[in-house]
């Protein structure tokens, strides 16, 4: 465990907290892409299958995996029941079939090993790298976003971005660790997808202005 990994995981937890807090206090999920949330649940379910198979890693590891699956399922539950009237499917129109299909193809083309577990792990990594697209697309369609929603997107993006210095750290100091090429490539791609958002977030939201596309 190094500082970047810790901050990354913390950032992920914070993003979940921000999203649930936004929905509970405003009694609304407007501006939140249901499709992105569904993709994240798929990501966690497929990646954390190792909860049942793998040798035990640590209490921290198990707890975090359960928290990510559970909070993701809870978010979808809230969005599809209590706050359903506040969700506007007309602006959440990104075609996620392409993201699911593309991730599956990538996982089948370059599996770390030819086993179901390894392919599902790779699938989840590729899918996570693009799961934010419906959300970013929605922001782009409306041309603006509530400040709280942008904090959520930022915290979620920072999580994967912070994994990059974590991998550099592991590469240099953690001699036992074998870096996962797929995770690194997908992680870089994921961070790249956020770069436009990060830029506007820094130049506008951090200066107290509303998130508005130019």
């Amino acid at each position: 465990m190094n500082i970047f990994r810790m901050l990354g995981d913390l950032s992920h937890l914070i993003s979940i907290f921000i999203l649930l807090h936004k929905m509970q206090t405003s009694k609304s999920c407007s501006g939140v892409s249901f499709k992105s949330q569904v993709l994240y649940l798929v990501v966690y379910v497929f990646r954390y299958l190792d909860l049942f198979t793998n040798p035990f890693m640590s209490y921290y590891n198990t707890l975090m995996k359960i928290v990510f699956i559970a909070s993701s399922a809870y978010t979808i539950y809230l969005m599809s029941t209590v706050f359903k009237p506040t969700h506007d499917p007309a602006i959440d129109t990104f075609k996620i079939e392409y993201l699911l299909g593309g991730s599956l193809v990538m996982a089948l083309l370059f599996p770390p090993k030819w086993t179901f577990m390894e392919i599902s792990w790779a699938f989840s990594i590729w899918l996570e790298s693009v799961a934010i697209l419906p959300q970013l697309f929605m922001v782009q369609r409306t041309g603006e976003a509530e400040t709280i929603t942008t904090h959520y997107i930022f915290a979620l993006g920072a999580y994967r971005a912070l994994y990059i210095p974590n991998w550099i750290w592991r590469y240099m100091f953690d001699k036992k660790a074998k870096l996962e090429t797929i995770a690194v490539v997908a992680g870089l791609a994921q961070t790249l997808l956020y770069s436009d958002f990060f830029y506007i977030y820094w130049t506008k939201v951090m200066k107290g202005k509303k998130f508005q596309l130019p």
Binding site: D9, H12, M64, Y163, R170, K175, A177, K178, E180, A183
Partner: peptide
């Protein structure tokens, strides 16, 4: 080198 990174990282 061990292969556990993919199960350790979240």
């Amino acid at each position: 080198k061990d292969d556990l990174v993919k199960h350790d990282e979240l």
